[in-house]
Amino acid sequence: MTALALGALGVVFGDIGTSPLYSLQTVFSADGFAVKATESDVFGVISLVFWTITIVVTIEFVIFIMRADNDGEGGIMALIALVQTAVIKRPWVKPALIAAGLFGVALFFGDGMITPAISVMSAVSGLTVINPSAGDLVVPITVVVLTGLFVLQRFGTNLVGKLFGPVMVIWFVIIGVAGLLQLTNDTSMLGALLPTYAVSF
């Protein structure tokens, strides 16, 4: 169970745990810095991120998606296979469901292509904070990292999970400790967990 949880941490929660980083960076830099780093805007953005992750993971995944399976197999492809073998009285329903499934597969492939590129490039671009002259190296380093990741991917997600699980444990511990240290200085940020800030933003 521990190995499975560690693998899931590396494969699944690695994406969830790192996505808010470039999301926040994009929010405050998009549209000519339209969103200012004021208290109300920061609280609104943090509240949106928190409740989006909470709703997606808790409600969508746990309540709905985990219950939609095909003999224990999940995912959009497994559900399409389930639709093909299902007995449906109305003739137009099955093609409509398959079309919706294919649309979901297209979104899945699109997400699978763009998310690694955005995640890695956002992480590597952090080098420019330390050394602004390293901007020209961001793309080459990103290409090298992505190539290495896709080479590892051919050995299966089990290997990827084993490799990145411990990395994500360290990552979550570091950001958790850093967050707690900041909260000891100023606990007002906990107010951003109120959904009213997300709604008003």
Rank of each mutant, 00 (worst) to 15 (best):
A78F: 06
I175Y: 09
I98Y: 04
F155D: 02
T128R: 11
L107H: 04
M77D: 11
V120T: 11
V49P: 03
L190A: 04
F64I: 10
T54M: 15
G161E: 05
S133D: 13
M77C: 01
T18A: 05
G7H: 03
W171F: 14
L102W: 06
P140I: 09
G176D: 00
L6W: 07
G44I: 03
I175Q: 12
G126H: 09
V57L: 09
L97K: 08
G101F: 10
V49Q: 13
V45W: 06
G101D: 08
D71V: 09
D15T: 15
T142C: 05
P95H: 07
L152M: 03
S122V: 02
T128C: 07
V93P: 03
L48D: 01
E73K: 15
A106H: 10
I98M: 14
L181A: 01
V105Q: 12
S47A: 07
S23P: 03
I98F: 03
F61R: 15
R154H: 01
A3P: 04
T58G: 09
P166S: 13
P140T: 06
M189E: 02
T184Q: 05
F150C: 06
G148H: 02
M121N: 15
I46C: 05
A123C: 03
F43P: 05
V27H: 09
F150Q: 04
M1P: 03
I174D: 03
V160M: 09
L97T: 06
I98K: 14
L137G: 01
M77F: 06
M121R: 10
I65R: 15
F64G: 05
G110Q: 01
A3E: 10
D71Y: 02
W51C: 01
V93N: 00
A134M: 06
S125Q: 06
L193A: 10
D69H: 15
F109S: 03
A68C: 08
Q84E: 05
P95T: 00
F103H: 05
L9K: 04
T128S: 00
F33E: 15
V138K: 12
D15G: 13
A117I: 06
A100Q: 12
N70A: 10
K89V: 00
Y22A: 11
F13D: 10
G17Y: 05
T58S: 14
A78K: 11
I76E: 11
D111W: 06
Q84I: 00
F155Y: 09
F172R: 10
I16H: 14
E39I: 00
P20N: 06
P91G: 07
V145K: 04
S188G: 10
V120E: 02
P195H: 06
L6Y: 02
A178L: 10
A198W: 00
L163G: 01
I141K: 08
T85N: 09
S125F: 13
I65Y: 11
A99V: 12
S122Y: 01
T128Y: 04
D31N: 15
P132W: 01
L180I: 13
V143G: 11
V169A: 08
G32P: 07
L9F: 07
T187F: 11
T38D: 13
N70Q: 08
V160D: 12
A5H: 11
